[in-house]
Design a protein around this nucleic acid. Structure first.
Lengths: 245, 245
DNA sequence: CGGAGGTTTGATGGAGCTCAACCGCGGTGG
DNA sequence: CCACCGCGGTTGAGCTCCATCAAACCTCCG
């Protein structure tokens, strides 16, 4: 279901300093307020189908969405995982080449395309911020390519957990060492689409990691990592190379 | 071997209208001329090691370079293939997270980092162009993720050939239908690193495509595609979906 | 209670990896 | 001049990891 949510002020916005508007001053923010509106999508609903017209670009305020590509025969590959403050859409292009799906309840801060593109011309802060965010996404995509191309199923699962844990740690509130709690917003099938595996293999590898005590399940979607270092060793990444005495 | 090449004028530059400087006017170009210098790298040589200091950003003028990541145990994955007019380096970051390798003789148009970042602040044309190029690269990376995650070895090879053929066609000089000649600047091993395969599998699949007449080898690196449509059918991509009467 | 969606587990087969041998070619030095 | 070697490529044989097919389980909810 799609809902138009009540407009709230940018001042109290949780992603005020991390989204595409992060560097805008009060004046520029006021202009953005003019062209923005909120929309909410329930879990499982499509925000956009591949090839569809997208009348807006948007920031993810709350929740999680995915970008994915599907082949004729049904094989699908997730190509983007969008969390709070991530940007949806591409200035200068009117259709999305990807399916965009809400994997949890998602709130978007939408900007009508034309006015937004106008603002990009007039206020450099937005384009600059968008460039930085896009470069970050490109780095993430490249890390993902290593996972898809060269890692084993076990390493893929460990890497996914490590990536989400890292993101949750950077948002704050969890200590670096000791037990870490990870909230996975993905079904087994979505994890499989992310990692280029089948859902059965995902399930088996998670079971194996559980059996070995590397992770502890608390329900299906909450995962406790008793020893982050041990999980990182399972990712196949160089983990102690950066240790300096 | 690294060589400092003679400086040539931007006016006669082959990538004048496709590189990061594409939208610059004569005045801005004059500023860029002040901070640029050319360097050439022989085939096989490293332009930069992962983690190294990169004192410049650059445009590829001629030749091909790759970005790749290597795991501790030696598994490597290519994450970028840089051809004429592509951009190397990231403004605001001093080290490269990837190995950058010249896979053919490469000529770079280098800009010292600090002055270039200064120019990005003062002349919006550069940042705007870089944003567009980065978004294109992100799209390419995502197409690549589908290839790595979900395609069979055969589809991967066909996709690689199709991508290179498409790029050569967009550069010009080859007709859309009929036989197409593709110049592959990659060894079997590099293709394997690109596609997340072993070099043996690459070799076998190329042999199979040759046996079936879908491609014709002319030496090791030149490939003729007698019927592009047939090659495209092997990529697994939807190929006739866009046909309009 | 029954059904649907998500998950787990088992059995089996195959695509692609690994190990290994061999080929062709160009460079190099005795 | 040619024997040798290194490099890139091809081909074969066997094995392994993961996909596939199948069945059962759990939990929520109507």
């Amino acid at each position: 279901m799609t809902k138009i949510a009540a407009v709230q002020s940018c001042d109290s916005c949780p992603i005020r300093y991390s989204a595409v508007c992060a560097r805008c001053d009060a004046d520029e923010l006021a202009q953005l307020e003019q062209i923005k509106y909120y929309r909410t999508f329930d879990v499982g609903h499509m925000i956009c189908w591949a090839g569809d017209e997208m009348p807006f670009v948007a920031s993810v305020v709350k929740g999680a969405a995915t970008l994915s590509q599907t082949m004729e025969d049904g094989r699908t590959q997730m190509v983007g995982l969008l969390l709070s403050s991530d940007f949806i859409g591409r200035p200068g292009r009117t259709t999305s080449p990807y399916d965009v799906t809400a994997v949890s309840e998602v709130t978007l801060c939408c900007f009508r395309r034309k006015p937004f593109e106008g603002m990009m011309m007039s206020t450099p802060h937005i384009g600059e911020r968008l460039l930085d965010m896009t470069l970050d996404e490109l780095d993430a995509a490249r890390e993902w390519m290593l996972i898809l191309g060269r890692k084993t199923a076990r390493e893929k699962i460990a890497s996914l957990l490590a990536i989400v844990a890292r993101r949750e740690m950077s948002i704050g509130l969890v200590k670096q060492s000791g037990a870490v709690m990870v909230e996975l917003p993905l079904t087994r099938e979505a994890m499989a689409d992310y990692l280029g595996l089948t859902l059965e293999t995902v399930s088996r590898q998670i079971s194996a990691l559980k059996r070995e005590g590397i992770i502890v399940l608390q329900g299906k979607r909450r995962i406790e990592v008793p020893d982050m270092q041990r999980l990182l060793e399972e990712t196949g990444d160089d983990v102690d190379g950066g240790v300096v005495a």
